[in-house]
């Protein structure tokens, strides 16, 4: 969070394995209670989607979903339906049902390992959103093949942000900025001075400062890159972002920043952007309104921007997420 105007209250909480921060205007009545309500939603998102909590809906689906339909919270159903649609939009470049691959590569909370091609082929057979069946009427989820696992990485934190911002909005908060471990940030309204929130993008190799600075108003920004989490074997670096279609880590250097209203969607788009690259992302976002993705090289220099078409009758400058 940058360019912070005076009169901001900050709240911090640990959830989903990282630090979350929420900035509210100091003049907001009952700011601590509003923050409490927002963090409660984050806790709910974690309880529903975390693969590290055995009682979460996702853990239950992973354990039992291949043998019986698993009854889940309607919120989980919404999240999964949304994630599956995003998977369809990105043609599988983002895929919540690639848990078998993530686990195989040791990225499910581990250090990373280099699997054999035969193992990858076997895990690929158990990966893909088409193996996930939602029954909205019955409130159940089923995995259509044994071995399929959901992994909400690239979605869950964004979902937590969306729930939190909805709670803040419903409680009457007009101005808030919240981030989840700095990889996704979501803004409600403007900053307390009435200007769009200013968010800096920092890239590890650019210690001297920010690579870019963007403005957010009623929108979300997610950044993905492979440099932050990776492991090296035999001189080769393997990043933690997997291409669910090939089963191998993405090799693309650089960074992608995705902007749209929903943080869950921007989270997924940023991950998908690394997989698809600018051309693929452009195709995916064509005719999809305001969502856009900015690509940066390994040094944090802007390469190009895709998506972000103005909706009919609206000019780019009115777009809710402006640069």
């Amino acid at each position: 969070m940058t360019g912070e105007p005076a009169g901001i209250l900050r709240f911090r909480r640990r959830a989903m394995g990282c630090i979350w921060e929420l900035a509210l205007g100091a003049d907001q009545p009952d700011a601590p209670a509003a923050a409490e309500a927002a963090f409660e939603q984050v806790a709910i998102a974690e309880r529903l989607l975390s693969i590290f909590l055995p009682s979460s809906d996702v853990s239950r689906i992973n354990r039992e979903g291949a043998s019986v339909p698993v009854k889940v919270s309607p919120l989980t159903l919404r999240a999964l339906a949304h994630a599956l649609e995003l998977s369809g939009l990105t043609r599988g470049a983002f895929d919540i049902a690639c848990g078998a691959l993530v686990r195989l590569w040791g990225f499910e909370g581990g250090e990373g390992r280099l699997p054999g091609q035969d193992e990858i082929a076997a895990a690929l057979k158990c990966s893909g959103s088409h193996y996930v069946a939602l029954d909205a009427a019955g409130g159940t989820v089923r995995l259509l093949r044994p071995g399929v696992r959901l992994n909400p990485g690239g979605y869950g934190k964004g979902f937590g942000l969306d729930l939190a911002l909805e709670a803040l909005r419903a409680g009457g908060t007009a101005s808030a900025l919240m981030h989840a471990g700095t990889s996704s940030v979501a803004a409600l309204g403007t900053d307390p001075c009435g200007r769009p929130w200013r968010v800096g993008i920092r890239i590890p190799c650019r210690d001297e400062g920010r690579a870019d600075e963007l403005e957010l108003q009623d929108g979300s920004l997610s950044v993905a890159g492979i440099a932050e989490q990776s492991f090296t074997r035999e001189g080769r670096r393997y990043g933690h972002v997997l291409d669910p279609r090939s089963g191998w880590p993405v090799e693309r250097e650089g960074w992608a920043a995705a902007l749209c209203e929903s943080a869950a969607a921007s989270d997924a788009l940023a991950t998908a952007a690394l997989v698809l690259g600018p051309e693929g992302m452009e195709r995916a976002l064509k005719g999809r309104g305001k969502a856009r993705v900015i690509f940066y090289d390994g040094l944090g220099r802007r390469l190009c921007e895709v998506g972000g078409e103005p909706e009919s009758g609206r000019s780019r400058t009115e777009s809710n997420v402006s640069q």
Binding site: P69, L77, R78, A81, L84, E85, S87, G88, L89, S129, H130, V132, A133, L134, D135, A136, A137, G138, T140, R142, L144
Partner: peptide, 19 residues
């Protein structure tokens, strides 16, 4: 009304009568 209608199916989501 989420998941009602054809949008979900069109995006590749299998919806079935699990009841």
């Amino acid at each position: 009304d989420f998941l009602k209608g054809s949008a979900a199916a069109a995006a590749g989501v299998a919806v079935f009568g699990a009841r």
